[in-house]
Amino acid sequence: MQRGKVKWFNNEKGYGFIEVEGGSDVFVHFTAIQGEGFKTLEEGQEVSFEIVQGNRGPQAANVVKL
């Protein structure tokens, strides 16, 4: 599992990016966020996640808020 901080997340569009220290930013879609109810992330929030290869490159999967 990787760890990072949410760079930004757009609730209306349902996606954003996670900053990884020493690495490239990783795309995150709301469907990758674990948990119940409305799935969103806050700027600066710490998360753990896996990186998978999506249609447009690397993206976050199994995102857990820390």
Rank of each mutant, 00 (worst) to 15 (best):
N55G: 07
E21Y: 10
E36R: 13
K39Q: 07
E21D: 10
E19Q: 14
N62H: 06
V47I: 15
A61F: 07
L41R: 01
Q2M: 15
V64T: 12
G14D: 02
Q34F: 15
E43N: 14
N11H: 10
Q2D: 09
S24Y: 11
F27C: 03
F9W: 06
G54T: 14
E12R: 15
G54R: 08
G35T: 06
R3S: 09
S24E: 14
N10V: 05
Y15R: 03
F49V: 06
S24N: 13
V26Y: 07
F27W: 05
L66A: 08
Q2C: 15
F27V: 03
V20P: 14
S48T: 13
K65G: 14
K13S: 08
Q59D: 02
L66R: 11
Q53E: 13
I33Y: 01
N55I: 15
R56P: 07
M1K: 05
G14W: 00
L41K: 01
T40C: 12
N10H: 15
V63M: 02
P58F: 08
H29F: 02
F27N: 02
M1N: 12
S48M: 15
V52Q: 13
V64L: 11
L41E: 02
E50D: 14
K5Q: 08
G37N: 09
I51P: 10
N10Q: 10
Y15D: 02
P58E: 11
I18A: 03
F30I: 06
F27T: 03
V52Y: 09
V64M: 07
Q34S: 12
K39R: 12
N55C: 06
Q45K: 08
F38D: 05
G35Q: 13
R3C: 06
V26N: 02
S48V: 07
K39A: 11
F49M: 13
D25R: 07
G4F: 00
G16D: 00
E50R: 13
Q59I: 06
E21W: 09
F30L: 05
N10D: 06
Q53T: 14
L41N: 01
T40Q: 09
D25G: 03
I51N: 07
F30N: 07
R56K: 13
F17P: 00
G57W: 03
Y15H: 06
V28S: 02
K5L: 10
H29V: 01
G23R: 15
G54Y: 04
L41V: 09
I51E: 10
N10Y: 03
F30E: 07
F9R: 01
K13N: 05
V6R: 00
I51F: 06
R3V: 11
M1T: 10
K7S: 09
L41C: 05
I51R: 12
E50C: 12
K65R: 13
A32M: 05
K5N: 10
